[in-house]
Design a binder for these strands. Structure first.
Lengths: 217, 217
DNA sequence: TGACAAACGGAACGACAGTTCCGTATGGTG
DNA sequence: CACCATACGGAACTGTCGTTCCGTTTGTCA
Protein backbone atom coordinates (compact mmCIF):
# COMPACT_ATOMS: atom_id res chain seq x y z
CA UNK A 1 0.00 0.00 0.00
CA UNK A 2 1.16 3.50 0.48
CA UNK A 3 2.38 4.73 -2.89
CA UNK A 4 0.08 6.58 -5.21
CA UNK A 5 -3.27 6.28 -3.56
CA UNK A 6 -5.09 7.88 -6.41
CA UNK A 7 -8.04 5.66 -5.98
CA UNK A 8 -11.75 6.17 -6.37
CA UNK A 9 -11.98 7.70 -2.97
CA UNK A 10 -15.46 7.12 -1.56
CA UNK A 11 -16.61 10.54 -2.56
CA UNK A 12 -16.36 12.03 0.85
CA UNK A 13 -19.42 13.76 2.24
CA UNK A 14 -17.26 16.79 2.74
CA UNK A 15 -19.49 19.49 3.93
CA UNK A 16 -21.40 21.94 1.91
CA UNK A 17 -21.23 20.99 -1.70
CA UNK A 18 -24.14 18.84 -0.79
CA UNK A 19 -26.02 21.83 0.41
CA UNK A 20 -26.91 23.15 -2.95
CA UNK A 21 -24.44 22.66 -5.73
CA UNK A 22 -24.41 18.92 -5.85
CA UNK A 23 -27.62 18.12 -7.57
CA UNK A 24 -30.14 20.82 -8.14
CA UNK A 25 -32.04 21.11 -11.32
CA UNK A 26 -29.86 23.19 -13.54
CA UNK A 27 -26.92 24.78 -11.76
CA UNK A 28 -29.25 27.37 -10.38
CA UNK A 29 -26.84 30.01 -9.18
CA UNK A 30 -23.89 29.46 -11.48
CA UNK A 31 -22.65 30.33 -14.92
CA UNK A 32 -25.12 29.40 -17.60
CA UNK A 33 -24.05 26.00 -18.91
CA UNK A 34 -23.39 25.53 -22.57
CA UNK A 35 -26.27 24.55 -24.82
CA UNK A 36 -25.19 20.98 -25.46
CA UNK A 37 -24.50 20.51 -21.80
CA UNK A 38 -27.98 21.53 -20.84
CA UNK A 39 -29.45 19.27 -23.46
CA UNK A 40 -27.38 16.35 -22.27
CA UNK A 41 -28.22 16.93 -18.67
CA UNK A 42 -31.85 16.55 -19.52
CA UNK A 43 -31.21 13.43 -21.55
CA UNK A 44 -29.26 11.90 -18.71
CA UNK A 45 -31.99 12.51 -16.18
CA UNK A 46 -34.54 11.10 -18.54
CA UNK A 47 -32.48 8.03 -19.28
CA UNK A 48 -31.59 7.48 -15.65
CA UNK A 49 -35.22 7.75 -14.63
CA UNK A 50 -36.16 5.05 -17.05
CA UNK A 51 -33.15 2.92 -16.26
CA UNK A 52 -33.78 3.02 -12.53
CA UNK A 53 -37.41 2.13 -13.07
CA UNK A 54 -36.66 -0.78 -15.35
CA UNK A 55 -33.46 -2.17 -13.94
CA UNK A 56 -33.46 -0.95 -10.39
CA UNK A 57 -31.04 1.32 -8.60
CA UNK A 58 -28.21 -1.03 -9.40
CA UNK A 59 -27.99 -0.24 -13.10
CA UNK A 60 -24.48 0.49 -14.15
CA UNK A 61 -23.60 4.04 -15.00
CA UNK A 62 -22.48 2.76 -18.38
CA UNK A 63 -25.99 1.55 -19.06
CA UNK A 64 -27.45 4.88 -18.19
CA UNK A 65 -24.93 6.58 -20.42
CA UNK A 66 -25.77 4.27 -23.29
CA UNK A 67 -29.49 4.90 -22.87
CA UNK A 68 -28.85 8.61 -22.88
CA UNK A 69 -26.60 8.38 -25.88
CA UNK A 70 -23.67 10.01 -24.12
CA UNK A 71 -20.42 8.88 -22.54
CA UNK A 72 -20.08 8.20 -18.85
CA UNK A 73 -17.80 11.16 -18.53
CA UNK A 74 -20.65 13.40 -19.55
CA UNK A 75 -22.78 12.11 -16.72
CA UNK A 76 -20.02 12.64 -14.22
CA UNK A 77 -19.52 16.22 -15.25
CA UNK A 78 -23.05 17.04 -14.15
CA UNK A 79 -23.46 14.52 -11.38
CA UNK A 80 -20.21 13.97 -9.54
CA UNK A 81 -21.57 10.77 -8.07
CA UNK A 82 -24.17 8.19 -8.84
CA UNK A 83 -25.92 9.22 -5.69
CA UNK A 84 -26.21 12.83 -6.78
CA UNK A 85 -27.85 11.56 -9.92
CA UNK A 86 -30.66 9.76 -8.23
CA UNK A 87 -31.02 12.41 -5.62
CA UNK A 88 -31.66 14.81 -8.48
CA UNK A 89 -34.41 12.53 -9.68
CA UNK A 90 -35.88 12.20 -6.23
CA UNK A 91 -35.87 15.96 -5.89
CA UNK A 92 -37.66 16.43 -9.11
CA UNK A 93 -40.41 14.05 -8.09
CA UNK A 94 -40.72 15.38 -4.59
CA UNK A 95 -40.87 18.93 -5.87
CA UNK A 96 -43.79 17.95 -8.02
CA UNK A 97 -45.85 16.55 -5.21
CA UNK A 98 -44.88 19.47 -3.02
CA UNK A 99 -46.20 21.80 -5.67
CA UNK A 100 -49.42 19.86 -5.77
CA UNK A 101 -49.73 20.08 -2.01
CA UNK A 102 -49.28 23.84 -2.15
CA UNK A 103 -51.85 24.18 -4.84
CA UNK A 104 -54.36 22.23 -2.80
CA UNK A 105 -53.57 24.24 0.28
CA UNK A 106 -55.29 27.13 -1.42
CA UNK A 107 -58.49 25.21 -2.03
CA UNK A 108 -61.73 26.27 -0.42
CA UNK A 109 -62.42 23.10 1.50
CA UNK A 110 -59.38 22.30 3.68
CA UNK A 111 -60.70 18.90 4.58
CA UNK A 112 -61.22 17.49 1.13
CA UNK A 113 -58.03 19.23 0.03
CA UNK A 114 -56.02 17.14 2.39
CA UNK A 115 -57.79 13.88 1.71
CA UNK A 116 -57.67 14.48 -2.02
CA UNK A 117 -53.99 15.03 -1.72
CA UNK A 118 -53.52 11.73 0.02
CA UNK A 119 -55.50 9.91 -2.61
CA UNK A 120 -53.72 11.62 -5.45
CA UNK A 121 -50.37 10.87 -3.93
CA UNK A 122 -51.23 7.21 -3.79
CA UNK A 123 -52.26 7.26 -7.41
CA UNK A 124 -49.09 9.00 -8.45
CA UNK A 125 -46.90 6.62 -6.58
CA UNK A 126 -48.76 3.62 -7.93
CA UNK A 127 -48.36 4.93 -11.44
CA UNK A 128 -44.62 5.15 -11.03
CA UNK A 129 -44.27 2.18 -8.77
CA UNK A 130 -41.12 0.74 -10.25
CA UNK A 131 -39.26 4.01 -10.15
CA UNK A 132 -40.37 4.99 -6.69
CA UNK A 133 -39.53 1.56 -5.38
CA UNK A 134 -36.06 1.75 -6.83
CA UNK A 135 -35.40 5.22 -5.50
CA UNK A 136 -36.78 4.32 -2.11
CA UNK A 137 -34.38 1.44 -1.85
CA UNK A 138 -31.52 3.90 -1.95
CA UNK A 139 -31.90 4.59 1.71
CA UNK A 140 -30.59 8.06 1.04
CA UNK A 141 -30.93 10.58 3.77
CA UNK A 142 -32.75 13.36 2.03
CA UNK A 143 -32.36 15.62 4.99
CA UNK A 144 -28.66 15.83 4.31
CA UNK A 145 -28.68 15.41 0.56
CA UNK A 146 -31.45 17.84 -0.25
CA UNK A 147 -32.40 19.76 2.86
CA UNK A 148 -34.39 22.41 1.05
CA UNK A 149 -36.49 19.94 -0.89
CA UNK A 150 -37.16 17.96 2.25
CA UNK A 151 -38.04 21.06 4.22
CA UNK A 152 -40.42 22.35 1.60
CA UNK A 153 -42.17 19.02 1.44
CA UNK A 154 -42.66 18.96 5.17
CA UNK A 155 -43.82 22.51 5.20
CA UNK A 156 -46.31 22.03 2.41
CA UNK A 157 -47.84 18.96 3.96
CA UNK A 158 -47.78 20.59 7.33
CA UNK A 159 -49.81 23.50 6.04
CA UNK A 160 -52.31 21.17 4.44
CA UNK A 161 -52.72 19.16 7.60
CA UNK A 162 -53.03 22.11 9.91
CA UNK A 163 -55.64 23.78 7.82
CA UNK A 164 -57.59 20.55 7.73
CA UNK A 165 -57.34 20.28 11.46
CA UNK A 166 -58.50 23.82 12.01
CA UNK A 167 -61.46 23.05 9.81
CA UNK A 168 -62.21 20.06 11.98
CA UNK A 169 -61.72 17.58 9.16
CA UNK A 170 -58.67 15.91 10.62
CA UNK A 171 -58.46 14.82 14.23
CA UNK A 172 -56.57 17.37 16.28
CA UNK A 173 -54.47 14.89 18.19
CA UNK A 174 -52.19 13.84 15.35
CA UNK A 175 -48.97 15.67 14.76
CA UNK A 176 -47.57 16.55 11.39
CA UNK A 177 -44.65 14.12 11.69
CA UNK A 178 -47.07 11.26 12.17
CA UNK A 179 -49.02 12.27 9.13
CA UNK A 180 -45.82 12.46 7.14
CA UNK A 181 -44.86 9.02 8.34
CA UNK A 182 -48.29 7.67 7.53
CA UNK A 183 -48.14 9.14 4.06
CA UNK A 184 -44.85 7.44 3.43
CA UNK A 185 -45.98 4.19 4.95
CA UNK A 186 -49.15 4.11 2.95
CA UNK A 187 -47.24 4.72 -0.24
CA UNK A 188 -44.95 1.89 0.69
CA UNK A 189 -47.91 -0.36 1.38
CA UNK A 190 -49.48 0.38 -1.97
CA UNK A 191 -46.23 -0.32 -3.76
CA UNK A 192 -45.06 -3.43 -2.05
CA UNK A 193 -48.43 -5.07 -2.06
CA UNK A 194 -49.09 -4.05 -5.65
CA UNK A 195 -52.50 -2.82 -4.65
CA UNK A 196 -54.45 -1.83 -7.71
CA UNK A 197 -57.63 0.07 -8.35
CA UNK A 198 -60.25 -0.77 -5.78
CA UNK A 199 -57.84 -2.27 -3.31
CA UNK A 200 -55.88 0.93 -3.37
CA UNK A 201 -58.94 3.08 -2.92
CA UNK A 202 -60.01 0.91 -0.04
CA UNK A 203 -56.69 1.30 1.68
CA UNK A 204 -56.86 5.03 1.17
CA UNK A 205 -60.30 5.02 2.72
CA UNK A 206 -59.07 3.20 5.79
CA UNK A 207 -56.23 5.61 6.31
CA UNK A 208 -58.43 8.61 5.69
CA UNK A 209 -60.99 7.36 8.16
CA UNK A 210 -58.30 6.90 10.74
CA UNK A 211 -57.16 10.44 10.24
CA UNK A 212 -60.60 11.93 10.16
CA UNK A 213 -62.15 13.12 13.32
CA UNK A 214 -63.95 10.31 15.08
CA UNK A 215 -67.53 11.39 14.28
CA UNK A 216 -68.93 11.07 17.75
CA UNK A 217 -67.60 9.60 20.97
CA UNK B 1 -30.80 -7.48 -7.34
CA UNK B 2 -27.32 -6.86 -6.18
CA UNK B 3 -25.12 -9.83 -5.58
CA UNK B 4 -24.75 -11.07 -9.08
CA UNK B 5 -24.05 -14.60 -8.14
CA UNK B 6 -22.14 -15.26 -11.27
CA UNK B 7 -19.75 -18.14 -11.03
CA UNK B 8 -16.97 -18.68 -13.51
CA UNK B 9 -18.25 -22.03 -14.61
CA UNK B 10 -21.85 -22.27 -13.49
CA UNK B 11 -21.69 -25.98 -14.01
CA UNK B 12 -25.12 -26.90 -12.81
CA UNK B 13 -27.49 -25.80 -10.10
CA UNK B 14 -27.65 -29.48 -9.33
CA UNK B 15 -31.04 -29.58 -7.79
CA UNK B 16 -33.53 -27.06 -6.52
CA UNK B 17 -31.64 -25.93 -3.51
CA UNK B 18 -33.99 -23.01 -3.27
CA UNK B 19 -36.95 -25.23 -2.77
CA UNK B 20 -36.26 -26.31 0.72
CA UNK B 21 -32.70 -27.12 1.58
CA UNK B 22 -31.34 -23.65 1.01
CA UNK B 23 -32.20 -21.85 4.17
CA UNK B 24 -34.47 -23.41 6.65
CA UNK B 25 -33.69 -23.39 10.27
CA UNK B 26 -31.68 -26.53 10.77
CA UNK B 27 -31.67 -28.86 7.78
CA UNK B 28 -35.13 -29.96 8.62
CA UNK B 29 -35.46 -33.15 6.66
CA UNK B 30 -31.88 -34.28 6.24
CA UNK B 31 -29.16 -36.11 8.07
CA UNK B 32 -28.46 -34.69 11.49
CA UNK B 33 -25.58 -32.22 11.06
CA UNK B 34 -22.48 -32.68 13.14
CA UNK B 35 -22.28 -31.01 16.52
CA UNK B 36 -19.77 -28.33 15.59
CA UNK B 37 -21.68 -27.59 12.44
CA UNK B 38 -24.87 -26.96 14.35
CA UNK B 39 -23.05 -24.74 16.81
CA UNK B 40 -21.45 -22.74 14.03
CA UNK B 41 -24.67 -22.36 12.18
CA UNK B 42 -26.13 -20.69 15.20
CA UNK B 43 -23.12 -18.46 15.64
CA UNK B 44 -23.27 -17.41 12.05
CA UNK B 45 -26.91 -16.46 12.23
CA UNK B 46 -26.27 -14.55 15.42
CA UNK B 47 -23.29 -12.72 13.98
CA UNK B 48 -25.04 -11.99 10.72
CA UNK B 49 -28.05 -10.62 12.55
CA UNK B 50 -25.88 -8.21 14.43
CA UNK B 51 -23.77 -7.36 11.43
CA UNK B 52 -26.77 -6.58 9.25
CA UNK B 53 -28.24 -4.43 11.97
CA UNK B 54 -25.07 -2.47 12.56
CA UNK B 55 -23.55 -2.26 9.10
CA UNK B 56 -26.49 -2.80 6.84
CA UNK B 57 -27.15 -5.50 4.31
CA UNK B 58 -23.95 -4.64 2.50
CA UNK B 59 -21.57 -6.04 5.09
CA UNK B 60 -19.01 -8.25 3.54
CA UNK B 61 -19.28 -11.96 4.17
CA UNK B 62 -15.77 -11.81 5.54
CA UNK B 63 -16.95 -9.43 8.23
CA UNK B 64 -19.76 -11.72 9.21
CA UNK B 65 -17.35 -14.63 9.34
CA UNK B 66 -14.98 -12.65 11.53
CA UNK B 67 -17.77 -11.68 13.91
CA UNK B 68 -18.84 -15.28 14.13
CA UNK B 69 -15.31 -16.47 14.66
CA UNK B 70 -15.40 -18.81 11.69
CA UNK B 71 -14.06 -18.83 8.16
CA UNK B 72 -16.12 -17.75 5.18
CA UNK B 73 -16.13 -21.28 3.92
CA UNK B 74 -18.05 -22.32 6.99
CA UNK B 75 -20.77 -19.84 6.22
CA UNK B 76 -21.04 -21.02 2.66
CA UNK B 77 -21.43 -24.62 3.68
CA UNK B 78 -24.66 -23.77 5.47
CA UNK B 79 -25.81 -20.89 3.36
CA UNK B 80 -24.89 -21.38 -0.28
CA UNK B 81 -25.48 -17.73 -0.93
CA UNK B 82 -25.52 -14.47 0.94
CA UNK B 83 -29.15 -14.18 0.09
CA UNK B 84 -29.99 -17.51 1.69
CA UNK B 85 -28.33 -16.21 4.81
CA UNK B 86 -30.49 -13.20 5.25
CA UNK B 87 -33.56 -15.01 4.11
CA UNK B 88 -32.91 -17.38 6.98
CA UNK B 89 -32.86 -14.43 9.33
CA UNK B 90 -36.00 -12.98 7.85
CA UNK B 91 -37.71 -16.33 8.25
CA UNK B 92 -36.76 -16.57 11.83
CA UNK B 93 -38.21 -13.16 12.61
CA UNK B 94 -41.32 -13.66 10.58
CA UNK B 95 -41.92 -17.02 12.20
CA UNK B 96 -41.82 -15.34 15.56
CA UNK B 97 -44.46 -12.78 14.76
CA UNK B 98 -46.54 -15.44 13.06
CA UNK B 99 -46.41 -17.48 16.22
CA UNK B 100 -47.55 -14.48 18.18
CA UNK B 101 -50.42 -13.93 15.79
CA UNK B 102 -51.52 -17.50 16.23
CA UNK B 103 -51.36 -17.27 19.95
CA UNK B 104 -53.50 -14.17 19.91
CA UNK B 105 -55.96 -15.78 17.53
CA UNK B 106 -56.96 -17.98 20.42
CA UNK B 107 -57.70 -15.08 22.73
CA UNK B 108 -61.19 -14.50 24.02
CA UNK B 109 -61.72 -11.03 22.62
CA UNK B 110 -61.05 -11.17 18.87
CA UNK B 111 -61.14 -7.44 18.55
CA UNK B 112 -58.52 -6.53 21.07
CA UNK B 113 -56.50 -9.54 19.95
CA UNK B 114 -56.09 -8.05 16.53
CA UNK B 115 -55.41 -4.53 17.69
CA UNK B 116 -53.01 -5.74 20.33
CA UNK B 117 -51.20 -7.63 17.67
CA UNK B 118 -50.83 -4.55 15.55
CA UNK B 119 -49.49 -2.55 18.45
CA UNK B 120 -47.12 -5.27 19.52
CA UNK B 121 -45.85 -5.68 16.00
CA UNK B 122 -45.04 -2.01 15.87
CA UNK B 123 -43.15 -2.24 19.14
CA UNK B 124 -41.20 -5.25 17.98
CA UNK B 125 -40.25 -3.64 14.74
CA UNK B 126 -39.25 -0.44 16.46
CA UNK B 127 -37.08 -2.36 18.88
CA UNK B 128 -35.20 -3.96 16.01
CA UNK B 129 -35.39 -1.04 13.69
CA UNK B 130 -31.89 -1.23 12.30
CA UNK B 131 -32.12 -4.90 11.50
CA UNK B 132 -35.57 -4.77 10.01
CA UNK B 133 -34.63 -1.79 7.93
CA UNK B 134 -31.59 -3.59 6.58
CA UNK B 135 -33.45 -6.77 5.79
CA UNK B 136 -36.29 -4.84 4.21
CA UNK B 137 -33.87 -3.14 1.87
CA UNK B 138 -33.03 -6.52 0.39
CA UNK B 139 -36.06 -6.37 -1.81
CA UNK B 140 -36.17 -10.14 -1.64
CA UNK B 141 -39.25 -11.83 -2.90
CA UNK B 142 -40.25 -13.91 0.07
CA UNK B 143 -42.96 -15.61 -1.90
CA UNK B 144 -40.31 -17.37 -3.92
CA UNK B 145 -37.56 -17.64 -1.33
CA UNK B 146 -39.66 -18.85 1.57
CA UNK B 147 -43.13 -19.69 0.35
CA UNK B 148 -44.14 -21.57 3.45
CA UNK B 149 -43.10 -18.83 5.83
CA UNK B 150 -44.90 -16.26 3.74
CA UNK B 151 -48.01 -18.38 3.49
CA UNK B 152 -48.16 -19.03 7.20
CA UNK B 153 -47.79 -15.37 7.97
CA UNK B 154 -50.65 -14.48 5.65
CA UNK B 155 -52.77 -17.23 7.02
CA UNK B 156 -52.17 -16.29 10.65
CA UNK B 157 -52.94 -12.64 10.08
CA UNK B 158 -55.90 -13.58 7.94
CA UNK B 159 -57.38 -15.61 10.76
CA UNK B 160 -56.85 -12.81 13.23
CA UNK B 161 -58.50 -10.29 10.93
CA UNK B 162 -61.43 -12.45 10.04
CA UNK B 163 -62.23 -13.28 13.60
CA UNK B 164 -62.09 -9.61 14.47
CA UNK B 165 -64.42 -8.83 11.62
CA UNK B 166 -66.88 -11.48 12.65
CA UNK B 167 -66.86 -10.00 16.10
CA UNK B 168 -67.62 -6.63 14.58
CA UNK B 169 -64.40 -5.07 15.80
CA UNK B 170 -62.91 -4.50 12.38
CA UNK B 171 -64.85 -3.01 9.51
CA UNK B 172 -66.15 -5.70 7.23
CA UNK B 173 -65.23 -3.96 4.01
CA UNK B 174 -61.47 -4.39 4.22
CA UNK B 175 -59.80 -7.41 2.73
CA UNK B 176 -56.96 -9.32 4.27
CA UNK B 177 -54.47 -8.23 1.62
CA UNK B 178 -55.13 -4.62 2.48
CA UNK B 179 -54.60 -5.27 6.12
CA UNK B 180 -51.33 -7.01 5.36
CA UNK B 181 -50.27 -4.09 3.25
CA UNK B 182 -51.26 -1.68 5.96
CA UNK B 183 -49.35 -3.64 8.54
CA UNK B 184 -46.24 -3.50 6.41
CA UNK B 185 -46.70 0.13 5.57
CA UNK B 186 -47.20 1.11 9.17
CA UNK B 187 -44.07 -0.72 10.19
CA UNK B 188 -42.23 1.10 7.45
CA UNK B 189 -43.61 4.40 8.65
CA UNK B 190 -42.51 3.78 12.21
CA UNK B 191 -39.05 2.83 11.11
CA UNK B 192 -38.32 5.45 8.55
CA UNK B 193 -39.69 8.27 10.61
CA UNK B 194 -38.01 7.00 13.75
CA UNK B 195 -41.24 7.42 15.62
CA UNK B 196 -40.70 6.76 19.27
CA UNK B 197 -42.92 6.20 22.27
CA UNK B 198 -45.96 8.41 22.12
CA UNK B 199 -45.61 9.24 18.48
CA UNK B 200 -45.65 5.56 17.71
CA UNK B 201 -48.66 4.89 19.88
CA UNK B 202 -50.44 7.77 18.25
CA UNK B 203 -49.80 6.40 14.81
CA UNK B 204 -51.00 3.01 15.91
CA UNK B 205 -54.16 4.64 17.22
CA UNK B 206 -54.82 6.32 13.90
CA UNK B 207 -54.41 3.12 11.98
CA UNK B 208 -56.50 1.17 14.44
CA UNK B 209 -59.27 3.72 14.26
CA UNK B 210 -59.23 3.51 10.51
CA UNK B 211 -59.58 -0.23 10.68
CA UNK B 212 -62.19 -0.21 13.38
CA UNK B 213 -65.80 -0.16 12.45
CA UNK B 214 -67.04 3.38 12.08
CA UNK B 215 -69.07 3.49 15.32
CA UNK B 216 -72.26 4.79 13.84
CA UNK B 217 -73.18 6.17 10.46
C1' DT C 1 -8.88 -46.14 19.72
C1' DG C 2 -8.58 -46.05 14.69
C1' DA C 3 -10.68 -44.69 10.45
C1' DC C 4 -13.38 -41.89 7.58
C1' DA C 5 -16.71 -38.71 6.38
C1' DA C 6 -18.00 -34.15 7.59
C1' DA C 7 -16.56 -29.68 8.63
C1' DC C 8 -13.18 -26.11 8.99
C1' DG C 9 -10.32 -21.88 7.62
C1' DG C 10 -8.92 -18.56 4.73
C1' DA C 11 -6.09 -17.48 0.62
C1' DA C 12 -7.11 -16.85 -4.09
C1' DC C 13 -10.16 -15.96 -7.92
C1' DG C 14 -13.08 -13.27 -10.92
C1' DA C 15 -16.12 -10.02 -12.04
C1' DC C 16 -18.44 -6.09 -11.62
C1' DA C 17 -19.27 -1.25 -11.44
C1' DG C 18 -18.02 3.54 -9.91
C1' DT C 19 -14.86 6.96 -11.08
C1' DT C 20 -10.95 9.18 -13.45
C1' DC C 21 -8.21 10.83 -17.33
C1' DC C 22 -7.06 12.82 -21.40
C1' DG C 23 -7.10 13.46 -26.35
C1' DT C 24 -10.75 15.29 -29.33
C1' DA C 25 -14.82 18.02 -30.70
C1' DT C 26 -17.64 22.07 -30.45
C1' DG C 27 -20.52 26.12 -28.91
C1' DG C 28 -19.90 30.90 -28.24
C1' DT C 29 -17.67 35.17 -28.78
C1' DG C 30 -14.78 39.23 -30.47
C1' DC D 1 -13.47 33.40 -39.10
C1' DA D 2 -10.23 32.27 -35.56
C1' DC D 3 -9.70 31.06 -30.61
C1' DC D 4 -10.42 28.81 -26.39
C1' DA D 5 -12.96 27.49 -22.58
C1' DT D 6 -16.27 24.12 -22.07
C1' DA D 7 -17.93 19.69 -22.97
C1' DC D 8 -17.57 15.16 -24.93
C1' DG D 9 -16.53 10.00 -25.25
C1' DG D 10 -15.11 5.92 -23.58
C1' DA D 11 -11.01 3.09 -22.45
C1' DA D 12 -8.69 2.09 -18.41
C1' DC D 13 -8.05 1.82 -13.52
C1' DT D 14 -9.26 0.06 -8.86
C1' DG D 15 -11.28 -1.35 -4.85
C1' DT D 16 -14.64 -4.31 -3.27
C1' DC D 17 -17.11 -8.56 -2.71
C1' DG D 18 -19.28 -12.86 -3.37
C1' DT D 19 -17.86 -17.36 -4.05
C1' DT D 20 -14.71 -21.38 -4.70
C1' DC D 21 -11.04 -24.62 -3.61
C1' DC D 22 -8.32 -27.54 -1.12
C1' DG D 23 -5.16 -28.94 2.52
C1' DT D 24 -6.05 -29.62 7.44
C1' DT D 25 -8.78 -30.62 11.60
C1' DT D 26 -12.38 -32.82 14.21
C1' DG D 27 -16.61 -35.33 15.46
C1' DT D 28 -18.63 -39.82 15.38
C1' DC D 29 -19.14 -44.64 15.21
C1' DA D 30 -17.69 -49.38 15.40
Amino acid sequence: MSTSSRAPAPAEPSGDQLAEGAAGEPPSGERPLRADARRNRERVIEAATEAFAVEGLAVAMDDIARRAGVGVGTIYRQFPTKETLYVAIIRRGLDQVTARARALAAAEDPGSAFFDFLRELLETVAAKRELVEALASAGTDLKSMAPATEAEWHEAVGALVERAQQAGAVRPDVQVPQVLALLGGTCGAVMHAHLEGDARAQLAAVVCDGLRCPPAT
